Amino acid sequence: MFGRKAAEKLDDAAATLHRRYGKAGDAVANAVITPARRQIDTDCTRCARGKCKKH
């Protein structure tokens, strides 16, 4: 359904929410972004680019 570029955008949006709003941003990301992100069969794109601080 979605591709690698969509996964990158969703991962970046979740990271931005976390960075700007902390736990509140994580809650929003988990409620809004995670369901769409689960449909993509790609690992964390931020890990692949060396920018992930969660994994």
Rank of each mutant, 00 (worst) to 15 (best):
2 F>Q: 04
48 A>H: 10
44 C>K: 01
24 A>T: 13
25 G>V: 04
17 L>W: 06
15 A>Y: 08
27 A>I: 13
42 T>N: 09
32 V>P: 00
22 G>F: 09
6 A>E: 14
31 A>K: 12
16 T>W: 12
10 L>R: 00
31 A>D: 09
40 I>W: 07
55 H>E: 13
28 V>P: 04
39 Q>A: 14
38 R>A: 15
32 V>M: 06
8 E>Q: 13
23 K>M: 13
25 G>L: 04
26 D>N: 11
6 A>Q: 07
52 C>W: 02
17 L>V: 05
5 K>T: 06
48 A>L: 12
24 A>D: 13
35 P>K: 01
18 H>R: 09
41 D>S: 12
11 D>E: 02
7 A>I: 04
30 N>P: 01
24 A>V: 15
20 R>Q: 15
30 N>C: 05
40 I>M: 13
30 N>V: 11
11 D>I: 02
41 D>I: 03
49 R>P: 05
41 D>W: 09
39 Q>W: 14
22 G>D: 08
38 R>Q: 15
39 Q>V: 15
14 A>N: 00
29 A>T: 03
14 A>R: 00
37 R>Y: 06
24 A>P: 06
12 D>N: 04
7 A>N: 07
20 R>M: 15
34 T>G: 09
21 Y>L: 15
17 L>P: 08
10 L>D: 04
32 V>T: 05
19 R>K: 13
53 K>F: 08
16 T>A: 14
22 G>E: 10
38 R>N: 15
41 D>N: 12
16 T>L: 14
37 R>K: 08
34 T>V: 15
42 T>V: 14
9 K>T: 08
37 R>G: 05
6 A>S: 03
40 I>C: 10
44 C>L: 05
36 A>M: 10
27 A>W: 13
26 D>R: 05
44 C>S: 02
28 V>T: 03
9 K>C: 08
37 R>A: 06
48 A>R: 07
12 D>Y: 04
43 D>N: 01
52 C>R: 00
50 G>Q: 07
20 R>L: 15
21 Y>T: 09
18 H>I: 00
14 A>W: 00
26 D>P: 06
